[in-house]
Design a protein around this nucleic acid. Structure first.
Lengths: 211, 211
DNA sequence: CCGCATCCTCATGGATACTG
DNA sequence: CAGTATCCATGAGGATGCGG
């Protein structure tokens, strides 16, 4: 992308991350450091050459760094400390987007890993007292609970139900909550979704690994 | 721009404002509502057809609205309340960009009006006590002062020097401050710039008008 | 397999000219 | 003044190739 050629913080920031796909690459790396193939999978629709281009650009700009796992030549992409600072504006955009999310998936693809970023944005970005929150969700007559603290969101189930169902349902509930400008304590709702436990459990584990 | 087709807040936000120039249009309207020509002037480098396209897109998305001044057919563009909510992520990007600003204008164009957004972002977005700050600036052996309160920044001069010089110098000082992670009380610096008083005075007046 | 690079097609952006 | 129309350059998207 051509530079805007403006001595303005916003313009210069967009010179770096304003290119198509760039902020979504950062989103993926805010979830966890990832391999090239994982990024491709987490960014449905991106062309392979574009992803390579964007990773190069972001690396040259100092947003992303390539790490070589000691074993062999495995390349892992991760955010630099400065790149991780994009969490703030990204969370702002996520909060701003809640009116766009109320219409539901509609046909868009969905990946539970994206909620790792979104939940933290929605639950930690509100003004006012920020203790911890508990959101109860009823799925098929079974009750689950999502506990949220200052550091982010953790999912706990009091049941044998899959974690994926909890996470997805949580998305709908939290988005509905925020859209309706309600408080975040002890709210219950009802959603009906199926899911895969192992995948989400791994996502959550990786999300707790520091970069 | 094609939709990302992802049920993710960030992706949907970028479906709306991720197009080139879109966030810069919003920046201009965060300064003040503006006519088409004013937007062209405040967005150096944008093509007229692109600006027209983007304004249409943003209007259809509910970010921008056209207002008809009672007199004749004068069209004024302004942010909707939802569109004004982009201030938060924009301010986040501006704060994130400070390392990019320390190298100076370099050849980029500069418009003092952009500081109306940037100053507020830099001075009101820091964590911790948020009282008011005073930044002293020495320009050609004369001292000026920029007073900042919770609602934003106001420029005052204790001298006959042009306001534009104050504002431009202020940019360099504040950016340097934030980049160096210093506090914001009673800091002095030195810059040497010329400017035009009337233009900046009008900008500041308009910035204090609510949308 | 993974991590890209090349090639091709087509949509989008940029600059300028033009119009109500 | 407030845009539209036009033309050309650039970049996105998709398929495929290729070395490790």
């Amino acid at each position: 992308m051509r530079s805007y050629g403006q001595y303005c913080g916003l313009a210069r920031a967009l010179d770096v991350v304003g290119d198509r796909w760039n902020l979504l690459v950062v989103r993926q790396l805010l979830i966890a450091p990832a391999r090239y193939r994982e990024l491709l999978d987490g960014l449905p629709g991106v062309a392979t050459n574009l992803l390579a281009d964007r990773l190069r650009d972001l690396e040259n700009a100092g947003v992303v760094e390539r790490r070589l796992a000691e074993e062999g030549s495995a390349v892992v992409y991760a955010l630099t400390p400065w790149g991780a600072g994009l969490r703030e504006p990204i969370e702002g955009l996520i909060r701003w987007s809640t009116p766009l999310m109320t219409r539901g998936p509609d046909g868009d693809r969905f990946d539970a890993a994206w909620l790792v970023v979104a939940l933290r944005a929605l639950l930690s970005g509100r003004p006012g007292p920020r203790r911890s929150s508990a959101i109860g969700i009823a799925v098929d007559d079974r009750l689950f609970q999502v506990l949220t603290g200052p550091g982010g969101a953790e999912v706990e189930t009091h049941d044998g139900r899959t974690l994926d169902a909890v996470v997805r349902a949580e998305a709908a509930i939290v988005l509905g909550l925020v859209a309706g400008a309600l408080g975040l304590d002890d709210v219950a709702g009802l959603v009906d979704i199926e899911g895969d436990e192992a995948a989400v459990r791994e996502i959550l584990q990786r999300a707790h690994r520091p970069h």
